[in-house]
Structure formats: C-alpha cells, structure tokens
Design a protein around this nucleic acid. Structure first.
Lengths: 265, 265
DNA sequence: ACACAATGTCTCATATACAAGACAATGCAG
DNA sequence: CTGCATTGTCTTGTATATGAGACATTGTGT
C-alpha cells in the first residue's frame, strides 16, 4: 500500500462530514465518522474541532458529533431569504391541518429529490421519508413534475442509470419515465403508488417560478388503499395550493426585481 | 508592506464567510465579501465555489453569495435533534398567538445573546432584533436569566468589557449587573426597559435543563409604555410556558438517558 | 468619449494543513 | 488478570491550497 497521493482539502472533508451527518440523522463518534468517510483520524479530529468551535458542529458529553446551533441559525437566515421555502412551508402546514394528511414540500438538490419540509398528518399513517434525505428522482411522483421544464436530453443526462432501479428491484424504462414526466406536466398533478414504498400513494402538484419552471412540489403521502374519490379531492387541494404559492412567488419576484439585490435597512 | 506570513485555512475562511452572511442577512458580491473579511479575492473565489457546489452557499444570477439549500436541511436536522429548540419554538408560536405579542426564544452562543426563533405579534409594534444576530449579553433581560447558573467569577470572565456599553453610550457597572443576574434568577422572571432600544420593554423567563441550569429564555418584546398590570400578566404567561418546556425537557432527557446515544431505526 | 474601478479567470511559489504514525490512556471481552 | 480495540493527543514530512498578482472584460461615472 504505497502512497497514491490523493489528499483532500479541509473544506472537502468538512462538506463530507456535514453531508454524512445529514444522511445519518444522529450523532456519531469521531472514530466512526473517520471510518465512514474513509478519512484519516487525525484530520477528522482537527476539522471537527474547528467546526465545533464555530458551533457548526456540536460535541455531546460522549464526544459524539452532530450539527450545532450555528447551522440552525444559518438555516433560518436561508429560510427568510427564500420566499419559495417560506411560503411553501406555510402552505404545507395549512394543508396538513385542513386535510389531516401528511404533507410535504419537495425540491431537487444536486440531481436528487429531497423533502424540504414535512408536516405529519392527523392519522397515524407512518412517515415514509425524512426531510433532507436525498432520493433518486424516478422513485417519486414529485420527481416527474420537477423535471417538467427540461428537454428529454437534459433529463437523460441528469439521472444516473442506477437511479432507475426501485427499492424493490424493479427497473423503470427511461423512455417510459420521460413519457410520465410529460404527462405529469400537462395537468400539473401526479399520482404514483408503490414506488419508494409498496403501500403508499404519493399525490403531488408543482410550484412554478416566474419563468414558469417547476421549482418545488407540494405533495400528500396517503395509504395506497385510499378511495379514488378522496385522492381526486386531495389532488384538487394540492393544485390550488401550488398555484397560490406560484402566484405569491411571482409577485414577490416582481418586488425584488424593482428593488434589485435587496439590502437590509 | 512585506510578508507577515499569516495564512488562513480554507475552513477558517469558510467559517468566516458563514458568520459574515449570518450577520449581514442579505446576499453579497464576492468582491465585497473578500473586502469585508480582509481576505484575498482569489481565495474567496475558490472557497465560495466549493461551498456553492455543495449547496452550502448559493449564487444568484448576479453572482451574489448567500446561504444555500443545504444549510436549511442541516438546520432542520439540528432542530429535530434538539428537544429544547423544537419544544421552545412551538411554545413561542403558541404564546404569540395567545397574547398577540412579539415572542422570542433566546439562547447564548459563544458568549453572546442570540434570538433562536422569533414570532411577530399581532400588533404593528416593530421587530427590534433579528434571529441569529449576536448581541452583547448585558443588553438584554434574557441575558441576565441565562447567566443564573454561573459564579460571579465565571460571569466576569465571560463578558468582555466593551459589552457593558449600551448602544446609547451608557455603561453598566459589572457589579450591578451581577446583582441583576441574581435578582432575575431568584424569581425566574426579568423585566428590562430601554437597554438595546429606548422604547422597548423586554419580559423574559428561563427554561432549565435537567441539571437546573438555564439554557434558554422565552421572552416578549413590548412597547415600554405597556401598562404594568399587562406586563405582570405577560410575565406570568412566560413563567408558565418556560416551566412547561423545562418539564418536557426533563422527561425527554430521561428517555434519552435510558436509550443512551440514540440511533436511527 | 474617456478614465477608473470592479469582476472573473489564470499562473506560480511557498507557507502550511493534511496524513501517517507513534504513544499513553481507557474500555471491554473472555 | 490478559489481550486487543478504541480513543484522544502529539509530532513530523511533504503534497498542495492559499495568496499575490497579472490579465482580459465588463461596468460606471463624468
């Protein structure tokens, strides 16, 4: 095992750590962290130390590592700066209260699908996906809506082959997938059952930016055996909500456009 | 101007960038960012590029830098992992709805006071402090409560001299400040007027962890001319809420204690 | 039109952060 | 107890990221 000389930068390691914690969703020992990232222990000790000092990471009393207070504050600043997330979030909470269903705000991040915000429903139906975890786009109804603005070619380039394989082993045909994208886009609603989870139906509708490009979806996660009439009703709710947010977004961007890059008073 | 050779690490620069954005609360051009941090432009370009790739930062169409989607997700993960913030936040929202007042959850971060979460009141009373910004501890009612668990010596060591100078130029006597801390601690309520802002009264009560150490406060920001009876009423609300959260926190930590370092299922 | 400032992209050297590994101190299983 | 694994701390050499600066573009004011 000679030197293949492939050093990583501190920043690269730091990003890896944050990404790993985001996927893991629970504190890790520093040793385990180094092992998981296949990084030298000494480097991780040093980097964790520095990030902990900035409160980006936090060490509990057993020296287990997790996100620190600072990231929460940063996240809050991001939220305040993003009308999409702020408005979408409020609408998700409202919809969830109104319908009693588990409701989510979904977006694309780095060629993956992710739940930006989730509000559990009144019923005890279990939560199928956690906020922040990255999931292959073809596994989701929302994914089909979110690709609406892209050409066939762009879609093919974006999605790696392995993402077409569902958790149950079934494989989606890319051509068929693109047809579903076009379909979803046409009516701005999408319904899928049994993709990421066999007993769950996902109902979704897209939110558009000022260029009419889909930027997020609002969706319900309901049991697969929900009556069709109920599903249709929920889809109408979603579409209305999504349109409402799209509109608010439009007026928000108009205001921002006039003021230019906004500045604090 | 010869070389004084004081290089900074990438991580150090990255932390500086995040901290600066948190204080600024609006996007910055990369050039301005470098200037503000007194860092070489080329370094900042490179580091911003890498952080943007990880979506920790985001560049808008004018290449202005701000927090990216990833920090929001990380912040959400932090929130989920912290009963204090999660519970405190819910209680702030409830209190704000119930009383119509501007309500905040406050904590200490790195020897400063900060608003972890804020909910505006029904009235049009203006917001005096933004979430995430670091403020000298002596400027706030909450700060007095949050130091309750420390010795005189620890308090003196924690607070730099310049933090005793109020925005209006008045200087607080450290000994007097410590007396106020002891006072606040005794009744677990604190009221201050005209510290950070001449026309604002801050009403606060502390939340305690399982060791009975203050870890946060819930507080109202009300106009200074609010009738005293109303203030007393609000203080009772605060104390009740704070106690409720402290209790929830206690049972939460009991459960965590049994399970040890929690792990995902 | 001009001058001047700021932006984004490069190249290169050298100060230094990372990686390897040694070490003592715990922890834990049998 | 003994043996083996893990943790946290430290030291040291060298691969390389940072910082200085040059450059072509683009913006801005007069």
């Amino acid at each position: 095992m000679t030197h293949e000389t492939q050093r990583s930068t501190g920043i690269g390691r730091a990003i890896d750590i944050l990404d790993y914690l985001n996927r893991r969703r629970s504190p890790v020992g520093i040793g385990d962290l180094a092992r998981a990232l296949k990084a030298p222990r000494s480097s991780i000790y040093s980097i964790v130390g520095r990030l902990a000092e900035a409160e980006i990471l936090q060490l509990d009393r057993d020296n287990n590592v997790f996100f620190g207070r600072a990231v929460y504050l940063y996240g809050d600043a991001y939220l305040a700066s993003q009308p999409l997330v702020r408005l979408g979030r409020d609408e998700v909470i409202r919809l969830s209260r109104e319908t009693g269903e588990t409701t989510q705000l979904c977006m694309l991040v780095a060629a993956k699908y992710t739940v930006a915000f989730m509000h559990p429903g009144a019923s005890l139906f279990r939560i199928s996906s956690e906020a922040g975890v990255l999931v292959p786009i073809p596994w989701t109804a929302s994914g089909r809506l979110l690709l609406g603005g892209m050409s066939d070619r762009e879609i093919e380039d974006l999605i790696p082959r392995e993402d077409y394989v569902l958790p149950n082993g079934a494989v989606i045909d890319p051509a068929q997938f693109i047809r579903e994208v076009r379909d979803a886009c046409a009516g701005n609603v999408m319904e899928t059952t049994g993709l990421s989870d066999p007993y769950t139906t996902c109902l979704a509708s897209a939110i558009f930016d000022h260029m009419r490009m889909p930027v997020a979806t609002i969706c319900f996660m309901v049991p697969a055996n929900t009556p069709d009439s109920r599903k249709q009703d929920l889809l109408q709710h979603l579409k209305q909500s999504a349109d409402k947010v799209s509109l608010s977004l439009l007026t928000a961007s108009r205001q921002a456009g006039i003021a230019g890059a906004s500045d604090a008073a």
